[in-house]
């Protein structure tokens, strides 16, 4: 714990807040600390977590991606047609197609950002509008329910019946989420590429002088984020059993808030998978707890927003301001 506190102060404090929150909710509601509730929390947070770790990689590399949630919707629609074209498809094809399509949309961002030397927020806001507008235009906002059976079938990975007869079930999205989280952790902490991503986000000019290839970094970061967006989109359909073109728009900002809450720095170079998971779970558990305490669902978001605002404002949870923008290493070139 002491090590964690020193090397990852934001994560450590977040963990303390989370434990306190759980303890409080455990006392306030007898349903909170049950296996069933924990399982449903995980089931419901899995898609956000998949997206969050994808976005984390972009943030670490010093970028930002506004377009990923809309990209996930685009992937969902393209998947429906791709699976139909591939004779129905199966899970293997599903992951390959969704991951590849997502990564492809990420590469579009990376190509524009690197090729024309434009900051990522400008490009991803442009692609956000382009992807969403085109999707709504071509689909005319149509919902799709006629999906391959394997895709919309609920798959239970682990189940457990507790003493009172209730079932606690973990579904496929949770397993996929775990794989994505671990893969992202391995990428950014255990590979040379991942460390280069950190270095590139931290000091782009220094990284360039050390021989880090800037284009490669952009393509890996945005490609990874896009791939996670695609896989998250695939899982979202598995949960909701429908494809709705405007179901995911707006989620990008909620996920961004959670990831930044988890200690990832806007501006690059800082952020961890642990903090990212804690940030997402803090928001999810707050909502879940409010629900169990019988608070009106309309009040959830208000309280979540207030929680984040208070968290930012408490001196003990201090998030460093990104270095002054428009100065020094933020700009590319000599």
């Amino acid at each position: 714990m002491r090590n964690l506190l020193r090397s990852h102060p934001t994560e450590a404090r977040l963990l303390v807040v989370l434990v306190a929150l759980c303890a409080g909710l455990g006392i306030g509601s007898d349903q909170f600390l049950t296996l069933g509730n924990a399982a449903s929390l995980l089931n419901n947070s899995s898609v956000n977590l998949i997206w969050a770790v994808g976005l984390l990689v972009v943030l670490i590399a010093g970028g930002i991606d506004i377009s990923f949630a809309v990209a996930a919707s685009v992937v969902q629609y393209l998947c429906v047609y791709a699976f139909a074209g591939l004779g129905g498809g199966n899970w293997l094809i599903g992951f390959l197609v969704a991951g590849a399509l997502g990564a492809g949309l990420g590469f579009v961002n990376a190509g524009l950002i690197h090729g024309f030397r434009v900051i990522s927020i400008v490009i991803t806001i442009a692609t956000f509008n382009a992807y969403f507008g085109l999707l709504m235009f071509f689909t005319s906002g149509r919902f799709l329910y006629d999906l391959p059976g394997w895709w919309s079938r609920r798959i239970i990975i682990v189940e457990h019946q507790s003493a009172d007869g209730r079932w606690a079930e973990l579904t496929l999205p949770v397993a996929v989420m775990l794989v994505c989280v671990i893969a992202t952790w391995a990428l950014i902490n255990r590979t040379s590429t991942g460390r280069q991503l950190y270095a590139f986000g931290d000091n782009p000019e220094g990284a360039r002088r050390a021989g880090v290839k800037v284009a490669t970094m952009q393509f890996i970061a945005f490609g990874w984020c896009g791939m996670m967006a695609g896989i998250g989109g695939l899982m979202q359909v598995n949960i909701t059993r429908e494809v709705v073109p405007n179901a995911l728009i707006g989620r990008e900002l909620d996920v961004l808030a959670a990831v930044v809450l988890g200690g990832a720095r806007l501006g690059g170079g800082r952020g961890s998978v642990l903090g990212c998971v804690l940030g997402v779970m803090l928001v999810a558990i707050t909502q879940n707890g409010l629900n169990l305490l019988g608070v009106s669902p309309y009040a959830f978001k208000m309280i979540v927003g207030a929680t984040i605002l208070i968290a930012i404002s408490t001196a003990s949870l201090r998030f460093g301001r990104a270095p002054v923008r428009g100065h020094g290493t933020a700009r590319k070139g000599h």
């Binding site: 590979t191 460390r195 280069q196 950190y198 000091n203 220094g206 021989g211 880090v212 720095r265």
Partner: peptide, 26 residues
């Protein structure tokens, strides 16, 4: 200096071993 402020002393000193060649474990 061209160093990496968010990374540890050890990683800064040994950073060049991470660059070039194939992607690999750290």
């Amino acid at each position: 200096l061209a160093l990496f402020p968010e990374m540890t002393v050890a990683e800064n000193i040994a950073f060049d071993t991470l660059v070039g060649g194939r992607p690999r474990g750290v």
